[in-house]
Amino acid sequence: MSHKDAVRNAITSVVLSASIATAAADETSIRLTEGPGLTQVQASCSMCHSLDYILMNSPFQDKAAWEKTVNKMVKVMGAPMTADDVTAVVAYLDSHYGKVAPTAP
């Protein structure tokens, strides 16, 4: 175990979860739009950060951009998601938080 891991385990784990718990009281106020796929989004996308990461990044990502984001969360950040989860989550994000088509002049 590295020095870093030692410090992490010894010191931060307890307090870290405590500080997250404090913040978590507030993140329960986040409401995402109802719709198919919401359950998967709530399960997959709130593990490492609050769901406002989705809200603030809307509505300017098209389906391809949301797909890229979700794939990054899986491949780089380590989100444990099945291929079906990914499909459902991308479809949900695109229909509720996707790029709004420019209105006709």
Binding site: E27, H49, S50, Y53, M56
Partner: peptide, 20 residues
């Protein structure tokens, strides 16, 4: 819409971009 003013313990109200 999600950028509300919110105070972390020991901080004054700041513009919240993400809770966690």
């Amino acid at each position: 819409a999600s950028g509300i003013l919110d105070a972390l313990p020991g901080k004054r109200p700041l513009i919240k971009r993400s809770f966690r």
